[in-house]
Nucleic acid binder design. Structure first.
Lengths: 371, 371
DNA sequence: TTGTAGGCGTTATCAG
DNA sequence: CTGATAACGCCTACAA
C-alpha cells in the first residue's frame, strides 16, 4: 500500500547533479564531447542517473522525435495471416526480420471489427496512419482508400504487383508471369499437348499474370489453343468426376494456381486423388506457386517457389528507405522478384495412350524425364 | 524529394472547422453532449476530421495518459516467433485473433538492437510502454526488468507459468506437471519400468514443472528411482551410440521435453532413428509436449498437446480486461490450462526381453494396450 | 458554448 | 559551457 515513487525524470537528475535539465539531456544523448561539456559535469550527471536508475521514457522520446519507429502491416484480405496454412505468413516473417534489423517495431493492424459499440469501423484504413508507414498485401485492393493515403503522401509499400495505381504505389512483387511460362514450357517439353489452367474465379492481378504466363508458355511451345485452356473455379465444382471428364477429352496435365488459401488448387488435388489418378503416370499436375503447408501424404508438387520471406524483407527495407528519404531507383520502387522453378514429382511425360502423334502441332522433341 | 506532409493533427481539424483545438479534442473524445456543444459545431468537426483522415497519435495519447488500443507482444527468447518451426507462433495467432475481436491492434516488439552505437541496450523493455499493455513470453525471464514494469503498474501478461514474481505477474500457463504425470503413468501402465527423461540443460520453469510431473508419475506408478531418471542435454551428445547404451542398461522408454525449438527432443528423435530402433517395438518415446512442425516421415508422437492458440487468446483477453479495469478473479489472473493427452504411435509395451519380472517394484497390473 | 493555459517527458535552439 | 524557452500532440481544468 505504500505509494511508490514515480520513475526518475531528467529534472530529478538535474536537481541531484546541480545542473539544468537540458544539460542532462545533452550528456545522456551522447554528444557531450562535440558540444564541449566539462568532464566533471558529465560524470556528475552520469553518476546521478545511475543512482536514480534513470531510464528515458520511450514515449516522450518519440513524441519529441516526430517518428514512432512503427511499421504498419495490414492485409485487405478476410483474415489476418495468423493462420499457419495461410501463405501470407512468410511475408510477415520477412518483414519482421528486416524491421528488427533496422530498429523498427511492427504494428499488426488486425482490421478489427470490434463487437458491440462501433460496428466495423469504417475508418479502418485511417488507423494505418498511426504508423510511420505501412506495408500492405492481399489479393484485392480498395483502390480509392489507397489512393487517398498516397494523396496524403503516406508511405506505403505493397507486397505483390499492383497496377491499379500506376507508378504511384511502390511494391515488391513476384514475377508470376515468367515463372508460369517456365512451368508450362516444362510441361510442354515433357510432351503434354493439352494443358488446363485452373485459376481462382476472381480477377486478381496475380491470377491474370499467371494466365498471361501460361498462354505465353503455350505459344512458345507451339501449342495452339484448340480448346479452352483456362477454367475458373473456387473449388466446389472440381470433383473427381470432373477430373475424369477432362482427362477423357485429352487433358494430360493440369496447372493450378496457389493463393493465400489455395482453394482451387487444393480442391483439384483432392479431386485427382479422388479419381484414383496417380502422379505422374496417369496425369501431371503443376502448381503455379507452391503450398506453404503441403497436404499430408502428398508428393512434392511441381511448380515454383515464391520467395515470400525475401519479398517481405525487401518490402520492409524499401518502406524504411522511403521513410528516411533515401534515394530509391525506380527499379527498386516497383520490384519483381524471380521465383525458383521446382521440378517436383508430379509432372512427367503424358501417358502413352495420349502421347501418340495425333496432331500436327510442331511439338518440340520429347526430352522427357525418366518416369 | 518532395517533403512529405505530416499526418493531420487536431489543430488542422480546428483550423478547417473554425474552432479551437480544445474543442476538437472534446468532440472527438465523445463527451460533447455532457459538456454541451452545439450540434452544428460537433458535426463540422467530425466532417473535417473525416475529410483529413485524422487519427489520434498513439504516442501523444499515451503521453497524455490515455489509451491507444495497442497491445504489445514481446518475447525474451532469441528470435521472434516469426519462424514457422518455432512453437511460439500459435501464441501469436491466438493473441491476434482475440485482440481483433476486441478492437485492439498488435505491436510486435522485435527486440531490435538498433544498428551501430548501442549494442542491444539493456533498457529495451521500456519500449513496451508504448502500448497500453504487453503480452510476454519466452523460456527465460529478465526478472528485474519485468519487476520494474510491474512497479509502474504497467499491465503485463505472461504466456507460460511464472513464479519468479509471485502473485504480481499475471499469466496464462499450461499445466505441464499434470500432463507430464499423465504421460509417464501411461508409459508405466504399458509396462515400462525404466523411463528416462531428457530435458533441456537450462533451468526453465517449464522444464522443472515437467520434471516434477515425471517424478510424480513414477511415484504414482510405484517405480522407485534406482538409476538416474533425468538427463540434461542440449542435444549434441544424444547420439545413436548413447541411445544404444541406455537401452542396454534397461531403459525401455524415453520421455523428452519439447520447447520453442525442441533441440533435445529432435536430437533424441534423430539418435533413435540413427540407432536403427523402431517405435514402439524396440523402444518407446513420448514427448512432453508436441512438435509444432513434426519431422517428416515420422509417426505421430505420443505426448500431449499444448493449447497454444487458446492460451494466446486467453492471454489477450486477460490483458484487455486488466486494461479496462474489469474485475478479474485470481484464478483467471494466473491461469493454468489443461493439455490434452495424445496417444500417438510411438509408445507401446516394452520389448519382451526387458519385460520380465526382474525387480520387486510393485508395478501395477499390466493393462497394456494392443501393440 | 467555446477558447486559453498548463502539463505529460523529451529534444533542440539560442542567447549569455 | 549553461539555463531558459519552445516545440512535439493530446487532454483537461478553468475562464470567458
Amino acid at each position: 500500500m505504500t505509494s511508490r515513487q514515480p520513475r526518475p525524470r531528467q529534472r530529478d537528475i538535474a536537481k541531484m547533479a546541480g545542473v539544468s535539465q537540458a544539460t542532462v539531456s545533452l550528456v545522456l544523448n551522447g554528444k557531450p564531447g562535440a558540444v564541449g561539456l566539462a568532464a566533471e559535469t558529465v560524470s556528475r550527471v552520469h553518476e546521478a542517473a545511475r543512482e536514480l536508475g534513470y531510464v528515458a521514457d520511450p514515449i516522450a522520446m518519440r513524441l519529441a522525435g516526430r517518428q514512432n519507429f512503427l511499421l504498419g502491416v495490414h492485409t485487405f484480405s478476410a483474415a489476418f495471416p495468423v493462420d499457419i496454412e495461410n501463405s501470407y505468413y512468410p511475408f510477415l516473417a520477412g518483414v519482421e526480420q528486416q524491421a528488427a534489423t533496422r530498429g523498427y517495431d511492427l504494428v499488426l493492424f488486425t482490421g478489427a471489427a470490434p463487437s458491440g459499440d462501433h460496428p466495423a469501423r469504417a475508418d479502418a484504413v485511417h488507423r494505418l496512419r498511426l504508423a510511420d508507414g505501412c506495408i500492405l498485401f492481399g489479393r484485392t485492393v480498395p483502390v480509392a482508400e489507397i489512393a487517398r493515403l498516397l494523396d496524403d503522401d503516406y508511405p506505403l509499400v505493397y507486397i505483390g504487383r499492383r497496377d491499379e495505381l500506376g507508378a504511384r504505389l511502390p511494391f515488391v512483387g513476384a514475377d508470376y508471369t515468367d515463372a508460369s511460362r517456365q512451368v508450362v514450357e516444362h510441361l510442354a517439353g515433357l510432351g503434354h499437348e493439352r494443358i488446363l489452367y485452373v485459376r481462382e474465379p476472381d480477377d486478381a492481378l496475380a491470377s491474370d499474370d499467371r494466365e498471361k504466363g501460361v498462354k505465353l508458355g503455350l505459344a512458345n511451345a507451339g501449342l495452339t489453343e484448340r480448346a479452352p485452356t483456362v477454367v475458373r473455379s473456387e473449388g466446389s465444382d472440381l470433383t473427381p468426376a470432373w477430373v475424369r471428364r477432362q482427362v477423357e477429352t485429352g487433358v494430360t496435365a493440369f496447372v493450378a494456381e496457389t493463393t493465400d488459401v489455395s482453394a482451387a488448387a487444393r480442391a483439384l488435388t483432392r479431386a485427382i486423388a479422388g479419381a484414383g489418378l496417380r502422379y505422374p503416370s496417369d496425369v501431371s499436375l503443376a502448381l503455379l506457386g507452391e503450398y506453404v503447408v503441403p497436404p499430408v501424404d502428398e508428393p512434392v508438387f511441381t511448380g515454383f517457389a515464391v520467395p515470400r520471406r525475401e519479398m517481405g524483407r525487401a518490402a520492409a527495407d524499401l518502406l524504411i528507405d522511403l521513410l528516411i528519404g533515401a534515394s530509391v531507383p525506380p527499379v527498386r520502387r516497383q520490384a519483381l522478384m524471380d521465383c525458383e522453378f521446382v521440378p517436383g514429382e508430379t509432372a512427367g511425360p503424358p501417358p502413352a495412350t495420349h502421347a501418340g502423334i495425333q496432331t500436327r502441332t510442331k511439338t518440340k522433341a520429347r526430352r522427357g524425364q525418366d518416369a
